[in-house]
C-alpha cells in the first residue's frame, strides 16, 4: 500500500555524520516542558552541560569511551545476575559477543550511570548531583565525617551536623528491616542506628547510616522525611557525582516515598546528545503528544525492575521474522542506566542481518567494544540509515530516533548501537 505511513516507514534517515559526533559546547533545550509538577534538569555526566565533567571542554578519549561501554556490560551482567537469582537460574553465562570476558559479580546494578540530576538536601539545603537510576531503589549520598572513606566529588560533601532537619533511623524501624529486600544486604546496627550497605555490579559500594532528611526537588517541591543512605564508606566508579537517586519499584525508592504527592508517576526525557539537556518530572503532566502505554510485565513483578513485553522489531520498515517466544522466554526490562539495548541472540542476529543488508553500500569498519556492526564513513558527508522500531504489548511502537540507532565513535567508526545477549534465556 502506497500510503504516507508506509512511505514514512520505509524511508531511511538521512544523516549528516558531523551531526552525530560529540560537541564540546552545551546547547540546553530552550523550551522547558510545560508542567505543573516537579521537573529537574537532566544532563549527561560526561558532556559539556555537566559541571561534573572532569574534562572541561575536552572530548573524552577513545579509551574512556571504551570504558563507558565496558561499564555498560557490567551493569547488564549485574541485572542478569539479580534476575537469575530470583528465577532460580543456576548462573549467568558471560556474553559471547564481547571479545574480553568481563567477570560477573552479583550485586545491585552498577552505580556509574550516565545521567545526573541536581537536588537539594537538608536545611539549609545543599545542592547535590545524583545519578538517576531506575534500576535501584535506595538513594544515597556521601556524608561527612566519612568515617571510613569518601571518593572525590565535585560538590561539597553533605554534612548532617549542619542540617536542622536531619535524623538517623533506628534499628527498630520497620524500614530498617526492609533494607535487606531493597539492597540484598542485611542491615547492621551501630549504637541503635540502622546501617545500610549497597554493593553494585562493578564492586562499587556505599555503606553508612539510614537517615531521613528534607529533600528539595524544586523550590516548590519539597519532600519531608525522605529516607536515604548517608554514606560513610563509599568507593567506586561514581566519578564526581555525590551519590545516587533510586527510582526503581521498591518501597524505599523516591517514587514510593513521594507516592502520595506524585501518584507514583514520573517521566524523563534524556538529552538527545551529550551536549544537550533533558528533564526528569514527577507527577502526571500532559505531554505535547499523547503517551502510548504498555503494561509492566508480570515476569519482573517481584523484582525492582520495570519489565516490558517486547513483541517485535522492524528494520527498514519490515517486521523481522522473529518468533514471539524469543522475546517471551527471557523478557525485557527498561533501564535508564543501561546505554545499549541488549536483545536475545536470535533477535539481535535478525536485526544485524537486516541492518547490514541495508547498509551494504558502505565500507565496514572493525567492531568497537560490545558493538560489532561498524562502518567507516571517512570522506562521506551524509548517509542513509534504516529506521528501527521496537514493538511492545498493547500495540506500542517506539521508532528509535536516528541518534539512538548509530553510535558515532569517530568519522571512521560509526556503529549500530545494539548488542546481543550471550544466551536466549538471559
Amino acid at each position: 500500500k502506497d500510503t504516507a505511513d508506509t512511505r514514512h516507514r520505509y524511508r531511511p534517515h538521512i544523516v549528516k555524520i558531523s551531526s552525530l559526533l560529540a560537541s564540546n559546547v552545551c546547547n540546553p533545550i530552550t523550551e522547558a516542558p510545560h508542567h505543573k509538577k516537579a521537573t529537574l534538569k537532566v544532563v549527561h555526566k560526561h558532556g559539556p552541560c555537566s559541571h561534573l565533567n572532569q574534562l572541561g571542554d575536552q572530548k573524552m578519549s577513545a579509551s574512556d569511551e571504551i570504558k563507558l561501554l565496558e561499564q555498560d556490560q557490567l551493569r547488564v551482567n549485574s541485572i542478569h545476575s539479580q534476575l537469575s537469582k530470583r528465577s532460580g537460574d543456576p548462573g549467568f553465562r558471560g556474553p559471547k559477543s564481547t571479545k574480553s570476558a568481563i567477570p560477573v559479580r552479583s550485586g545491585q546494578t552498577i552505580g556509574s550511570g550516565n545521567y545526573i540530576v541536581t537536588v537539594g538536601l537538608g536545611t539549609p539545603k545543599k545542592q547535590l548531583s545524583l545519578v538517576l537510576d531506575t534500576g535501584s531503589a535506595l538513594s544515597w549520598t556521601q556524608c561527612e565525617p566519612c568515617v571510613r572513606y569518601c571518593y572525590a566529588q565535585k560538590e561539597p560533601i553533605f554534612k548532617p551536623l549542619e542540617s536542622t532537619s536531619y535524623a538517623n533511623v533506628s534499628c527498630a524501624s520497620e524500614l530498617c528491616n526492609a533494607l535487606e529486600s531493597t539492597t540484598g544486604v542485611s542491615p547492621g546496627c551501630i549504637t541503635s542506628t540502622c546501617e545500610y550497605g549497597v554493593q553494585y555490579g562493578d564492586n562499587s559500594y556505599s555503606v553508612g547510616y539510614l537517615s531521613k532528611e528534607r529533600l528539595t526537588l524544586t523550590s516548590s517541591d519539597v519532600i519531608e522525611n525522605f529516607y536515604f543512605g548517608c554514606g560513610q564508606n563509599n568507593r567506586g566508579l561514581f566519578r564526581g557525582a555525590a551519590g545516587l537517586l533510586g527510582l526503581s519499584r521498591d518501597r524505599l525508592s523516591l517514587i514510593f516515598q513521594s507516592g502520595k504527592k506524585y501518584g507514583r508517576y514520573f517521566s524523563y526525557c534524556l538529552p538527545s546528545s551529550r551536549s544537550s539537556t533533558g528533564f526528569l518530572s514527577f507527577g502526571y503532566r500532559r505531554p505535547r503528544k499523547a503517551f502510548k502505554f504498555t503494561p509492566l510485565s508480570s515476569l519482573t513483578k517481584d523484582t525492582q525492575f520495570y519489565g516490558l513485553d517486547m513483541t517485535g522489531i522492524s528494520v527498514g520498515g519490515k517486521t523481522l521474522p522473529i518468533t514471539a517466544s524469543v522475546f517471551s522466554k527471557a523478557g525485557t526490562v527498561i533501564d535508564s542506566g543501561t546505554v545499549i539495548t541488549r536483545l536475545p541472540p536470535k533477535a539481535y542476529d535478525a536485526v544485524r542481518k537486516a541492518f547490514r543488508q541495508l547498509m551494504s553500500d558502505y565500507k565496514a569498519a572493525q567492531s568497537y567494544s560490545i558493538l560489532d556492526t561498524c562502518y567507516d564513513f571517512t570522506g562521506v558527508e551524509s548517509v542513509f540509515v534504516p529506521k528501527i522500531s521496537f514493538f511492545f504489548s498493547g500495540g506500542v511502537e517506539v521508532e528509535v530516533d536516528v541518534s539512538g540507532i548509530i553510535y558515532a565513535v569517530s568519522q571512521s567508526q560509526v556503529c549500530l548501537a545494539l548488542a546481543g545477549n550471550g544466551d536466549d534465556s538471559d
Binding site: R264, Y265, F291, Y306, G331, D401, G404, D426
Partner: peptide, 30 residues
C-alpha cells in the same frame, strides 16, 4: 533478559506510571 537501554530512549519521553503498572512513550523534542 533483554534490556531496552537509554540510547534507544533518545527523543522519547518515557513515563513510568507505577500506580497503574504501565510504561508510556511519547515523541519529544528533547
Amino acid at each position: 533478559v533483554g534490556i531496552f537501554g537509554n540510547f534507544q530512549h533518545l527523543k522519547w519521553e518515557v513515563a513510568y506510571d507505577v500506580g497503574k503498572e504501565r510504561v508510556g512513550f511519547s515523541p519529544s523534542a528533547c
